[in-house]
Computed example of a mutant assay.
Amino acid sequence: MFAIRQLLLLIATAMAAAVTCDCSQTLTSQLLQTVVSAQPNDNVIVSPISIETCLALAYLGAEGQTAAELATSLQLPQAGDKRAVAQKFGRLFEKTKSATGTATFRLANRIYIDERFQVSPQYNAYAVDQMHANAESVRFADAAATAANINSWVEAETDNKIRDLIPANGLDANTALVLVNALYFKAKWVNQFHNHTTTRRHFHESAARKVEVDMMKQTDDFLYGDFPELDATAVELAYLDTDVSMLVLLPKSVDGLADLEAKLKSVDLTKLSTAMRTEEVILHLPKFKFEFELELKPVLEQFGITSMFSDEADFSSLLAAQEKVAVSQAQHKAFIEVNESGTEAAAATYLKIVPLSASFQQQTYQFVADHPFVFAIKDNENVYFVGHVTHF
């Protein structure tokens, strides 16, 4: 039997044009709610697109119940038509070609396969030809050297923001295949903050605890919304040379984050902008930078993705040889930095396979993010990164 080990790392920010996957919205809201309910006091960031792309690569090699569970969880509109699914995810890569000016975006897949094996012609046609997941033959028996090779590729794709994705002892002679996804974005704000306006200000981590943080400030026109049904307000900051923006959702009460995130479970974050309008906003937003790590397996199991982690896993379309494979572990690691200039983000995922055993009068609004808030980096169709800030 083979086991697939998946590890996802990411750093956060924006992207470019507007092609993509209709599948992400339910997964995005459920992913955020599931993760934060388990770790409510941690700063969190995840990349729905990177996770979906990695799962799509697995789906292309899956059959039977395993394929059905992945298709349902990913809400694949062409479930069963693997070529169409591969093409749909493959169009994400066209965004890398549309990034211009100061915005940088890279999305890349890679297949590392042991010299003992080959991917099946069918999988090759979908994953390699359509999703640009080039296959490289390696010797997993040379574990440390192969891990260094994979890590070097990830570091190059993420501008050295994702390092040591795979530990030296993370591979061994039994490894058959590793699938890797890397995601990187860097962009400046359309309306940049000025360093001299950043001051030390209190951030209320809870009603009982506050700390001093570097709080950025500017007054300009932003998309702004007041959502009574969420008991929150929102502001959207655009990035330069891209149609991606950062949405910030701020609960009206200091301790309102959990209630807000529970309500967001049924909200499409990409559509909130249509209910917002351009207003003059006095914006206070803290600079923040943090890492996040997550065991993905229990999260995915809550989405109904279970068989691929069991003896019943069916990845019979993955390898040329008819070998039994299953997913044994899923990990996620992330990093984000937001400052006066803009945001930088990256993500990487790997799967390790081993033998199984209207008009308004102008007024100015205040938006002071001085207590826990949700953020999403998105365009009108996709959420690329989502998370929350709870403490410093």
Rank of each mutant, 00 (worst) to 15 (best):
M1D: 08
I4V: 12
R5D: 12
I11T: 14
A12L: 11
T13L: 07
M15H: 11
V19S: 09
C23M: 09
S24F: 08
T26Y: 10
L27C: 03
T28N: 11
V36D: 02
P40T: 07
N43P: 07
I45S: 10
I49D: 01
I49K: 01
C54L: 12
L55R: 02
A58P: 02
Y59R: 03
E63Q: 15
G64Y: 08
A71I: 04
Q75S: 14
L76S: 10
L76F: 10
Q78H: 12
A79N: 07
A79L: 08
G80C: 10
D81F: 09
Q87R: 14
K88H: 14
K88I: 11
G101P: 08
T102N: 12
T104E: 13
L107R: 00
R110M: 15
Q118V: 09
Y123I: 10
A125K: 12
Y126S: 08
Y126H: 14
D129E: 14
M131F: 09
E136I: 13
R139L: 09
F140P: 02
A141S: 11
A141W: 05
D142N: 12
S152P: 06
V154H: 03
A156M: 09
N160A: 13
D164H: 11
A168V: 11
A168K: 13
G170Y: 05
G170F: 04
D172M: 03
A173T: 04
A176P: 03
K188L: 11
Q192R: 15
Q192I: 01
F193W: 07
F193K: 02
T198G: 05
F203T: 04
E205P: 02
E205W: 06
S206E: 05
A207P: 02
R209H: 13
V211L: 07
M216P: 07
D220E: 14
D221P: 02
D226N: 15
D226A: 13
L230R: 01
D231V: 11
A232M: 07
T233C: 11
V235D: 06
A238I: 05
D241L: 08
V244W: 06
S245L: 06
S245R: 09
L250C: 06
L250A: 03
P251N: 08
D255A: 12
L257A: 03
T270W: 01
T270V: 11
S273H: 11
A275I: 01
R277Q: 14
V281L: 07
V281D: 00
I282R: 15
L285F: 05
P298I: 00
V299I: 13
L300N: 08
I305W: 03
M308F: 05
A313P: 04
F315W: 00
L319S: 00
A320P: 01
K324R: 13
Q329S: 13
F335R: 07
I336T: 09
G342V: 08
A347P: 04
K352R: 15
I353W: 03
Q361Y: 11
Q361E: 13
Q362T: 12
F367Y: 10
V368P: 00
A369T: 06
P372S: 09
V374N: 01
V383T: 13
F385H: 03
V386L: 14
